[in-house]
Design a protein around this nucleic acid. Structure first.
Lengths: 233, 233
DNA sequence: TCAAAAGTGTTCTCAATACACCCATGA
DNA sequence: TCATGGGTGTATTGAGAACACTTTTGA
């Protein structure tokens, strides 16, 4: 007897469906996780990821986009599905499955304001506080995923401002890989991809000499992707 | 106003949750997809992936294990979550999200019998027929995922019998990568991982000379995994 | 004896790594 | 003028890719 059919006739089981977003940023040489400080029940006073129930009239990515915009003011955030969390007792109040999404955003002042207004806060990924339910597990899983992902997709650029310097990019990869990289080899490798464009400006905030700014070449990246790529640093 | 809280108070939206399994096998040098020939409504006479609704008292992986056992008689099948399919109109009959899982199994006679008894059938992945709903998309996505996965995890062994020959393994990788590999380089690379153990038997079904059988060293693979690995062929 | 698949070694090329000094500039 | 971070080149090593012939044996 086949399950699908059997269930089709008799199934009455329905679930709440939530999305929870593991939102990463990069600031002052550190990978950051956005955490929401809950001021109202449920879980008043606790910390959680940014999440919401999914409405019947929207898809999971729609729901994810909705709350990301709400919390950051941004549309078109780089977001990927991590995995589904569905253990029976994961939420004592509801039979709810959560589809976790990880997102990468460029931290800037505008966003900081909105984040702040929403009662959210950045934590160093190494100092993630206790979160509700299985949200700590989600954060750990997402972090492992982006470490893995960084090896073959240029996700780094999603976390930096549009204009960035090579030393900044290096620091980001050092934060993700948790090890130091040789500046000569890093520069050589990054430039060999031919995916960043040198600008005529310098950033002088971190040194007297100043470092040239670059921008990511999304055009070339598209072609790059179509062939099949490899982005190991 | 925060979505999570808002929804917590007012949310009444519940979903059916399904799992659909994209089950891959390998036979006669070809990658195969297991497809279910539906003899009862809904979708009587159509083809679909192997799926089921998730029961309220089980997790998504539980449900997936349940139907995999039902269709193959096997427990402990290699299974990974692919992604969630949740567009509003994906199923005209229900508001249902499906968590797709891909699974790799070793085809053998016992399984063939069970598969047959359940009205399922193997198709070449290149000749996947029309399936119901978004199941074709799932199959395409899963195939892309295992192509990607094969580059850095030794998933190949999940698809071969316990004892296999190096030429068999090569054919499998050729099927996954869709290109021919040099037998000398392939052998050298595979042996360099030191993850397969040569046995004292030969398989003579494909040549007069016969090819030595090997088995996968799961012990070593575990250690391998703990360090961090790379399995590009 | 021969057809058909299994098995084997070497060369070349290129990318990854290791490594140390000069440059530009604001304070 | 000097402290600070930015920027550059070379030599070595190791892995991947290309490539052709011998071995075994059942039919």
């Amino acid at each position: 007897m086949n399950s699908y059919i059997q269930k089709d006739k008799y199934q009455k089981d329905k679930f709440y469906v939530a999305v929870d977003c593991i939102i990463f940023g990069f600031n002052k040489g550190r990978l950051k996780l956005l955490v929401f400080n809950r001021k109202i029940d449920p879980f008043k006073g606790s910390l959680s990821l940014i999440g919401s129930f999914v409405n019947i009239g929207e898809s999971v990515p729609d729901a994810s986009e909705r709350i990301l915009e709400e919390f950051t003011g941004l549309k078109n955030i780089y977001t990927k599905e991590l995995k589904t969390y569905s253990t029976v007792d994961r939420d004592p109040a509801y039979r709810c499955i959560s589809v976790a999404q990880y997102a990468l955003i460029r931290i800037n002042n505008t966003i900081e304001q909105i984040v702040d207004d929403n009662g959210a806060k950045w934590f160093d990924v190494d100092e993630t506080p206790q979160l509700i339910l299985d949200h700590n597990q989600m954060a750990v899983d997402a972090l492992r995923r982006i470490e893995e992902m960084a090896r073959y997709k240029p996700i780094g650029f999603e976390l930096l401002p549009e204009k960035f310097t090579i030393p900044q990019l290096q620091k980001l990869y050092e934060a993700i890989y948790r090890r130091n990289l040789d500046p000569r080899n890093f520069r050589k490798k990054i430039l060999s991809f031919d995916l960043i464009i040198k600008l005529d400006e310098k950033d002088k905030t971190t040194s007297k000499k100043g470092a040239f700014l670059y921008k990511f070449d999304y055009q070339k990246y598209k072609k790059f992707q179509e062939s099949g790529y490899n982005f190991e640093i």
